[in-house]
């Protein structure tokens, strides 16, 4: 048994040595500029909406809706996956990435029907974000109540 453990350890080191590493600096730079562009677009949309006389809260809400719409549209047009491949976290973290995570399984599982396919599988990737997002907001709410 101990010998097997040693073999596994030795092999893990071999794999570590041979496996190519991702280009961290390059990937970070790409994530930074693409993520930055998405956020700047969000700000631009907010400013445009505010110029029509909406207040900050209303404009924020409308901006979110617009960005989610754009994320879904680009997913449906087979473009968002290419952006994601290039930008990584830069296009996953913004809300457009959340839209992509909801809609891509919906497209993929349409063949399994609208109930067990689209309806159920839609949450396979983004579901945990919703669950833990809600839990985190409850915890923050409780802390906020006491301070």
């Amino acid at each position: 048994m101990a010998q097997m453990q040693d073999m596994k350890k030795e092999y893990a080191q071999m794999v570590e040595r041979v496996s190519p590493k991702s280009h961290t600096v390059r990937d970070c730079a790409r994530a930074f500029w693409v993520g930055g562009v998405i956020c700047t677009m969000g700000q631009l949309i907010t400013n445009i909406i505010k110029s029509f006389g909406y207040n900050q809260d209303e404009a924020g809400l409308l901006t979110t809706i617009t960005l989610v719409f754009l994320g879904i549209l680009l997913t449906g047009l087979d473009i968002y996956d290419s952006i994601g491949k290039y930008a990584g976290a830069g296009s996953i973290v913004p809300i457009t990435g959340f839209a992509n995570a909801m809609v891509s399984p919906a497209i993929e599982f349409k063949k399994e029907g609208y109930v067990f396919g689209v309806g159920a599988r839609m949450f396979t990737i983004a579901g945990p974000v919703i669950v833990y997002g809600v839990i985190a907001s409850v915890i923050v709410g409780i802390i906020h109540y006491f301070i």
Binding site: Y80, D81, G84, S104, P105
Partner: peptide
């Protein structure tokens, strides 16, 4: 993952 998911 679904094909249209933007991952690396």
């Amino acid at each position: 993952f679904p094909l249209e998911l933007g991952t690396q």
